[in-house]
Design a binder for these strands. Structure first.
Lengths: 242, 242
DNA sequence: ACCTGAACACCGTTCAAGT
DNA sequence: ACCTGAACACCGTTCAAGT
């Protein structure tokens, strides 16, 4: 249900008597959880497994987080905090700055590939998580978008990046299992040549440009298309500057 | 592991002796599973729940599907079969046809909103699931894309639609719980006005254009951007167009 | 305040056994 | 061939109890 509303204010008050500073912190727990996900995959994260990782009774975590969903929100928060907005360069085109933001977003998510299935889908209410939104609203406003269009733009932008990265990560995972062409061959065998001529051609000349390049193309195309449609002002788009 | 390789050829051979046609079919099972997901949500689907739905021992399903993942692939297959390619209108622009395909794809996925979390993420190996790919390759080829660019285009297109719809569906789900503005107010309270001026403005004039409109805008922008960048102009493809 | 440990109601999957 | 039912090794969560 409501995931993040319990322990917010009283982080750790220094008790008058014995200062047995709690070995267990939200931070420590989240990092351990993230480590499990990174090392063993999203499915390996359980409260019990987390307990053993922390060398603590599995139920101890429930003192710091109301439930597993809240813990996962903690993970999302941790990963999202890796988004570095300071890298924005205001001297560049709006299109370029939006593209850069997309790549920064993507990199933050992909820095924990096994966690993407969590991070891409859950959305937070913490102020920190809305700072990128405000930033993007600014950018779209600067491009001459109306308030409504800017909001739509941000929504589109965020969904685009998160969705794209998510599917990128699951395709990476399925790549790992197969030894590349083994499945290719099997697949080619199943597809009737006369019904799938283009697919066969494409598979023969294994022409895959790579995930990052694909993301780059898609991002550039989307942003260009959006800006052309909804910005009013002179955008001075001298096309693509290398 | 490998999900769909077991029972393929022998669907139901008429036994010489007593014809006790099995009450349990892959079809029946998948449909029951999909019903559970539709009615009670993705999380409610378990082998045991499925057993009671079918009025059968929970383990009976394991005779028809090797594991739960295979069952889920069955669901994906079922939903994806709702994609109707026959609705393509070759007299229209390539851009329009691609947009139409995107909307058809989206509608097929959204026809089972609770299942999107499964359908959007898993990808199948069945020939049927590759027919849309071949179709899209054709469209991009017709637009003058090189083979490599066409493949990238299809990849981008598919990831875009699935990712977009997935995040659309999760945002719908979180909308249901909140009574719209209650969370809005709480959120506005948490965001310092001086740090988030644009967000506050946007939230005051609750300007949300709707999910379908957003998807339409995004799709149009993406496709326009892609076509402008990678198509060679006149689409006189004297190549292999039947 | 912070952690433990037993207990509850679930899971997915295996496997021998029934018909 | 097709289904049953017990069993195994897990889950998330609750709650009384410890310190």
């Amino acid at each position: 249900m409501d995931t993040n509303k319990s322990n917010k204010s009283k982080k750790r008050q220094a008790r008058g008597s014995g200062n047995a500073r709690p070995s267990l912190t939200r931070e420590v727990i989240v990092r351990a959880a993230l480590k499990i996900v990174d090392d063993e995959g999203y499915g390996a994260l359980s409260m019990r497994r987390l307990g053993t990782e922390l060398s603590v009774d599995p139920m101890a975590v429930y003192y710091h987080f109301p439930n597993k969903a809240a813990l996962q929100d903690g993970i999302v928060e941790e990963v999202m905090s890796g988004i570095d907005l300071g890298r924005d360069d205001p001297s560049k085109t709006i299109a370029e700055r939006l593209c850069a933001a997309a790549h920064i977003y993507r990199e933050a998510l992909l820095s924990h590939p096994q966690a993407v299935q969590i991070t891409a889908v859950r959305s937070l209410n913490t102020p920190d998580s809305f700072r990128p939104v405000e930033f993007l609203l600014e950018l779209f406003a600067e491009a001459g978008f109306t308030r409504t269009d800017a909001l739509a733009g941000v929504n589109i932008f965020a969904r685009f990046v998160r969705g794209m990265v998510l599917l990128e990560s699951v395709s990476m995972k399925s790549m790992e299992n197969d030894h590349d062409d083994i499945t290719m061959e099997a697949l080619a065998g199943k597809l009737p040549l006369e019904d799938f001529p283009l697919m066969h051609k494409a598979m023969q000349e294994a022409c895959f440009i790579g995930n990052e390049a694909e993301f780059g193309r898609a991002t550039k195309a989307l942003i260009k298309g959006l800006l052309e449609e909804y910005s009013n002002g002179e955008k001075e788009v001298d096309d693509d500057v290398g």
